[in-house]
Simulated assay, not measured.
Amino acid sequence: MAETLVDIVKRHTDAQGGEGFHATPIKGFALLRANRRQQHPTHLVSQPVLCVVVQGAKCSVFGSRRYDYRAGQALVVSVDKMPGLSRVTRASPSEPYLCIVLEFDPAGMREMLESMPTPPALAGGAQRGIFVTDFAGPATECVWRMARLLDTPEAIPVLAPMLRRELYYWLLAGPHGGEIAHVVLGTGHTQRMMKALHALCDQFREPMRIDDLAAIAQLSPSAFHRQFKALTAMTPLQYQKQLRLLEARHLMMAGVANAESAAYRVGYESPSQFSREYARMFGAPPRRDVVALSAAVA
């Protein structure tokens, strides 16, 4: 009897030490495992990815929206550099949380879209950059075959690109194909919104001017604010603030800055304001949070 996805992911994560995030020889194809529910969320900045839950359950929060997803479902993040948090909600040593993470390649998806005889109808209105979808049928079979390739490394360079291309077809042909095409491929006004979002991301340390970002998106400031929130589930100011605080945390964890210097390096003018907002986001002041994190990974 052929192995299930649960069997394959469990076997390969066992071979790599069990829990944690495990890269594989297939570019942009990783395995994630947790043997217990998480008591505290993990803060992250997500790239465009497809997170297919093989066993267990998880919740992720981006801005004001919470996404719960379980085995047989997938989280689709189609916006670059999305700050958020996630927490494993169902896992045990006997039935660990297992997930396959596939990075999107916008160029490859664009090529597939252009070659489809019947491309997906583009969704109208303000676009969501994140959603949960049921994951079954041909797309699941495609992911299963990609996972099986891990047992034949010599076949990966030849077959993995073909399977990735096939997966893009099933995603674009599926019920959320129009949304994926809009955001990942950057079509119409969504492309301009993505340019404005990337400008904000690249310059998150600088004072933000909504008028400048709205001009990039070719929208009025009020329309830009509304569409940015629809896309990311947060306001431009909230997005900038989360990027600043996550970068400051990274600098302190790396030992290259203390709380005060990290605050200035990410764009804060007031260390006290930085400390307040940091504690609000991470649950503890900077120094205490970094000490706790360092102890947890030691």
Results as ranks from 00 to 15, higher is better:
A2Y: 04
T4F: 01
L5F: 07
L5T: 06
V6N: 11
D7C: 02
K10V: 00
H12M: 06
T13L: 03
Q16C: 07
Q16M: 12
E19A: 15
G20F: 02
I26P: 00
K27M: 11
G28A: 11
G28N: 13
G28E: 10
A30Q: 14
N35D: 15
Q38V: 03
Q38C: 01
H40N: 05
P41C: 06
T42I: 13
T42N: 08
S46A: 15
V49H: 15
V49M: 14
C51Q: 14
Q55N: 12
C59E: 15
F62D: 03
R66Q: 13
R66D: 08
R66C: 10
Y69N: 05
Y69P: 01
A74E: 09
A74L: 13
L75V: 07
V77R: 09
V77S: 09
S78Y: 05
D80S: 14
K81R: 14
M82V: 06
L85R: 14
R90D: 12
S92I: 05
E95W: 03
Y97M: 08
C99K: 01
A107K: 14
M109N: 01
M112W: 08
P119Y: 03
A121Y: 10
A121N: 08
L122V: 13
A123K: 09
G125Y: 12
G125L: 07
R128T: 06
R128E: 15
I130S: 03
V143W: 05
L150S: 02
E154M: 07
A155E: 15
A155G: 05
I156C: 05
A160G: 03
M162Q: 15
M162P: 04
R165H: 14
Y168T: 04
Y168P: 02
L171G: 02
L171E: 06
L172I: 12
P175G: 06
G178W: 02
G186L: 11
H189R: 13
T190N: 14
A199P: 01
A199S: 09
L200F: 03
R205A: 14
R205I: 04
R205D: 09
E206H: 11
P207W: 07
P207Y: 08
I210A: 10
I210T: 12
L213E: 12
A217Y: 07
A217D: 09
S220Q: 13
P221Y: 13
S222V: 11
Q227M: 07
K229T: 15
L231P: 07
T235K: 03
L237P: 00
Q238S: 11
Q242K: 10
L245K: 04
L246A: 06
E247Y: 11
M252W: 05
G255D: 10
V256K: 12
A257C: 11
S261C: 07
Y264I: 02
Y264T: 04
R265L: 06
V266L: 07
G267V: 02
P271F: 11
R276S: 13
R276W: 12
Y278Q: 00
A279P: 08
A279L: 05
G283K: 00
P286F: 11
A292P: 04
L293W: 09
A298W: 10
